[in-house]
């Protein structure tokens, strides 16, 4: 007896194929879920080991390498010293570790914010990346400022800027290396060689501080002029673009 001929059979065949596909997806989905769980277990364990056995891990260079590889693939921070009694006196790794993590957060976000981040946001991101352990949650803004001070000797490239009461901005990309100025010039070219901070806020979705910082730097460098005639907004003109603008209007 031969089966599998005719419309019914084709339909049935198709139906079965779909069933198999569903099943396959389901299995994959399950497997993925399991992997995510294992990732979590791995993470928690590695974090705990990093805090507890830091010195032992450090001593054994072969193992240290392996440990770092694990941390890299799972995304765990091997630096997680607690604050401790001595760190207040500047002894121990706590503040140095924080300094590394602060710069890391800045580097990771500067594509978005141009290297200017509020201390509050920095803290939230830093704590989230450090791990779930309770001791990580207790890092205060004061700790961060203290850690950032360690970077003072690298010159004025990395700055904590006070912005009024209990508000700070951290600037990690110095004016010398920032690409914001070039972006501003491009915008100004489109806008008759002048623009304002609020214009940057609207068009580029920049934070107010970012625009202010960049424009200020350009004024200092002699690249921009300020015009206060407009009572609503402080306007910035870019003399280097004048000729180009005049030519284009002709």
């Amino acid at each position: 007896m031969r089966r599998g001929i005719g419309l019914g059979a084709i339909k049935k065949n198709k139906y079965e194929q779909e069933k198999y596909k569903d099943k396959g997806n389901e299995i994959q989905e399950n497997q993925f879920e399991q992997m995510t769980k294992q990732l979590e277990v791995f993470k928690v364990n590695l974090e705990e080991f990093a805090t507890k056995h830091k010195n032992e891990i450090r001593k054994n260079s072969e193992f240290r390498k392996q440990f770092q590889e694990m941390c890299a693939s799972i995304g765990v921070d091997p630096l997680s010293s607690g604050k401790g009694f001595w760190s207040v006196l500047g002894i121990g790794d706590f503040y140095y570790e924080l300094a590394v993590q602060i710069v890391e957060v800045c580097l990771a976000t500067n594509a978005k914010n141009g290297g200017l981040i509020s201390l509050d946001e920095l803290r939230t991101r830093l704590i989230r990346a450090r791990g779930k352990n309770k001791s990580h949650q207790e890092i205060s803004k004061d700790d961060l400022i203290r850690a950032a001070k360690k970077l003072k000797i690298f010159g004025s490239g990395f700055n904590v800027i006070p912005m009024g009461k209990d508000k700070y901005m951290v600037q990690s990309v110095p004016g010398e290396l920032s690409m914001d100025h070039s972006v501003i010039l491009q915008q100004a070219e489109k806008n008759n060689s002048c623009l304002s901070v609020s214009y940057l806020e609207q068009v580029l979705k920049w934070e107010k501080e970012r625009g202010e910082k960049a424009l200020e730097h350009m004024v200092n460098q002699g690249l921009a002029w300020i015009d206060l005639q407009n009572c609503k907004d402080k306007m910035y003109y870019f003399p280097s673009l004048f000729t180009a603008c005049i030519n284009s209007t002709n």
Partner: peptide, 8 residues
């Protein structure tokens, strides 16, 4: 989290 990505 981009910080964790960058870290790793």
């Amino acid at each position: 989290d981009e910080t964790i990505r960058f870290k790793s």
